[in-house]
């Protein structure tokens, strides 16, 4: 069964129905938003249990604000990304990760490793490298290149101007490239 059963309805419309007590809207919205929030929280935190906690808290806030939600004023997804990022930032500040300690195990099968494993190793390496970025750069890079959002929406989520978004993304990518080049040998594959 697909997670998202009402894909033709906007988040706003579903949230309005949720606020009137429509159980089907509650199920559809949960199915649609939970993976999105969880995925974003995981990208920012690198920890599944913590991503679950953040997802729960972010969605709880959404359900409680639903009766007062003014349709068309803000996008539900923008609001959720912002709340999720703020919750993640709070957690990161409380418990600054030690970086390499949380780093996933690198693939050690050498150049002959099959492509699926190599893809997985790349994903893990990127996740690890993201953790070495400053919070705001990490958030900007994840929103642009993993969530694939446009500059205006990222600017709204991060509450900054479009130029600041571009600057954060550019600096984040430069730093990521350096980190990943430094670890390339450990991964045992080439990027070509």
């Amino acid at each position: 069964m697909p997670y998202d059963a009402s894909s033709d309805e906007t988040d706003d419309a579903l949230l309005a129905r949720y606020a009137t007590g429509d159980a089907a809207a509650a199920r559809a919205l949960t199915a649609r938003l939970t993976p999105r929030v969880y995925g974003h929280a995981y990208r920012l935190l690198g920890d599944r249990a913590e991503a679950e906690d953040v997802t729960q808290e972010a969605l709880l806030r959404l359900w409680r604000i639903a009766p007062n939600w003014r349709e068309g004023e803000a996008k539900v997804s923008t609001w959720l990304y912002r709340v999720t990022a703020n919750l993640c930032t709070d957690r990161v500040r409380r418990k600054r990760p030690s970086g390499m300690e949380d780093m996933p195990e690198m693939a050690d099968d050498g150049p002959g490793a099959d492509s699926a494993m190599q893809e997985r190793a790349r994903a893990d390496a990127l996740q690890s490298a993201l953790h070495d970025l400053p919070d705001r750069q990490r958030q900007a890079v994840v929103l642009r290149h993993i969530e694939e959002l446009g500059t205006p929406e990222i600017a709204a989520i991060m509450d900054i101007g479009p130029r600041a978004v571009e600057s954060l993304v550019a600096r984040g990518k430069r730093a990521l490239a350096e980190i990943l080049r430094g670890r390339k040998d450990e991964l045992g594959y080439t990027d070509d």
Binding site: R27, G39, R43
Partner: peptide, 24 residues
Amino acid sequence: YFTAARDDAPLPSGDFMARMQAMA
């Protein structure tokens, strides 16, 4: 790297999805 990360999207477990639905 970004493509690999998008293809390897972290998904919530079925148990967690059920809990989120109950909460909603």
